[in-house]
Nucleic acid binder design. Structure first.
Lengths: 329, 329
DNA sequence: TTGTACGCGTTATCAA
DNA sequence: TTGATAACGCGTACAA
């Protein structure tokens, strides 16, 4: 409603002064500042973000693109991003890519139209047109051969630790439910699994690896495949909690008790992992903190800082619950 | 980079014509249109959304405020909103209220600063300053005494149907895990439960009602309270799947088998309900569709249509899985 | 310290 | 059908 002119008139100053009071209060006398602030209060004036943005060539929006909005792990990351963005005066513009390059590109194009200032990507895909100096931060995923700042965990080490937990329980035949292997992150987790096996002098058996798509359904069918093997595993390490939950269901359908007949380790630490039956042992990622750190990095880039020379690697931690137990065979 | 002047020069036309080709192509000759389009292509021109917005006094953003981003039911609603918004050329600006009035008000204030054109609310709270003509749509919740367009289900009827399912299985002592009773929606579900009991001539027992907060933890403690009763219920109807999942855990801890010793019905139809043990019988809400309908309504309001005279009420459906069975006592 | 005035990149009005 | 030009509301040189 009220624009800057109204406020200026009410305060008996020029519009420039009103603007200064709001943007750079220090350069204004306390007397006039108070006068203006009172007028702002009285008129209920709110600066027009579009006009301000046009002038400054900034929208103060950050686009966050996620492959699938209903993924609970990503929800935590988004929550972390929103928290920091809100505190710092930025808005979160949420987009779902659905693993569709066109959708991703549409959202990425918002930078060129000044709809948004920066882009945070939660999946494993990059926009097809990637200017070298577009403000871009990756959360969770990363690309070893590209210089894009990323916030993530050490997936190899985390997967290795998760597998070692199973090995320490005496398991020798450990299955793997992997994520899509076109993701660096999935390959890392598979490699961590292999590294742990190697250190225990257990031969890597490709037949014990089933690829899923991170979601419950694919975990269910991956586990079904593994249990239908002539010599099924006594334990399985899943690269996501969702897939692990699907695996739990498959185990039940096969009449296998967890952990007596089959141990299951998940990855992510989503909220529901604690309410499965049995509660899931899982490698907990600090997803909210990953989001927060990604937002902080993005904002520091937008404010003129240099992107971090290297990725920020946050700690993950194994949370042992009841889905894992000593090997019986 | 390239602004409209560059394109105009390249095409040999005025900037006005460039704008027309992009906004109202019909009023331009095919010849000049092609010429301009070629120049747009060549220069990689993207209209500046800030400038366009300033001129039109529109941002094409829709703020969506949700109480808690990690709520999986709301994630589905958000997904529905995003889908329609994307298709219609709008952006979704996501905010988390955390049930904090100040946060909600901050997001609502984005309408006055032209940061966004409309507001979709997913919780039960309203902004403290509510102009009568602010574009506002409610998803899921509603306020009977205010004229705010809402997309929702018939909560009374749905809750009644869910309770009737338990009654039809022979249960006479049916507990209720309610949502926060300052929500209209929670009260409706409680009323539906009461109505079903009344029709079966079962006296309403306030001692069998435990109030939760929609989340797993509160469902867990609510169920614990009910099971600690001298005469615990043989069945329970929860106003959310999350709380029902918490109830399942409480039942296990009390050594009760589901459904043999206790039947449990949830509400919402979240994805994980199918992967509990046992899979949860639940009243499925079309949450993605609710979001889509809310977005459609918002966009039609923004495009000048009148808000719907009455709420849009979508159908909910009981999905019987394995958490409910015949009464034994 | 404050005011004047220009320009940010569009869209819309008016004339041609 | 097209072009010239005036806003849209703000931020910031520059002047006072």
């Amino acid at each position: 409603m009220a624009d800057i002119r109204t406020v200026a008139a009410a305060a008996g100053v020029s519009i420039a002064t009103v603007s200064r009071v709001l943007k750079t209060p220090d350069v204004v006398t306390k007397a006039t500042r108070d006068k203006v602030l009172a007028a702002v209060e009285a008129t209920g004036y709110r600066p027009n973000a579009l006009a301000s943005g046009l002038r400054r060539s900034k929208s103060d929006n950050i686009v966050v693109v996620v492959p699938y909005i209903q993924n609970p792990f990503f929800s935590g990351v988004i929550q972390g991003i929103e928290g920091v963005a809100f505190a710092e005066g930025y808005q979160v513009l949420l987009g779902e890519s659905q693993n569709d390059q066109q959708r991703l590109d549409s959202y990425a194009a918002m930078l060129r139209s000044k709809t948004a200032d920066g882009l945070i990507l939660l999946g494993a895909a990059l926009p097809s047109q990637l200017d070298d100096k577009t403000p871009l931060v990756l959360a969770c995923e990363y690309f070893p051969d590209q210089r894009i700042p990323a916030i993530r965990i050490d997936n190899v080490a985390a997967a290795k630790a998760a597998t070692e937990h199973l090995l320490s329980l005496g398991h020798k035949r450990i299955g793997k439910i992997a994520g899509p292997l076109d993701n660096q992150l999935s390959r890392d987790r598979l490699n961590g699994y292999r590294a742990a096996l190697a250190e225990s002098d257990i031969a890597y058996d490709e037949g014990l690896v089933a690829e899923g798509a991170f979601d419950v359904e694919s975990g269910h069918s991956a586990m079904t495949r593994l249990l239908d093997l002539k010599a099924p595993p006594t334990a399985v390490f899943s690269s996501s909690d969702e897939m692990a939950i699907g695996a739990l269901k498959a185990a039940r359908e096969h009449g296998m008790r967890v952990p007596e007949d089959l141990s299951v380790v998940g990855f992510d630490g989503i909220r529901f992992a604690d309410f499965c039956d049995p509660p899931l042992t899982t490698m907990v990622q600090p997803n909210v903190e990953i989001g927060a750190a990604a937002a902080r990095m993005m904002i520091s880039i937008l404010r003129g800082g240099e992107p971090a020379p290297e990725d920020i690697v946050l700690p993950a931690q194994l949370l042992v619950r009841q889905s894992t137990g000593a090997a019986r065979r």
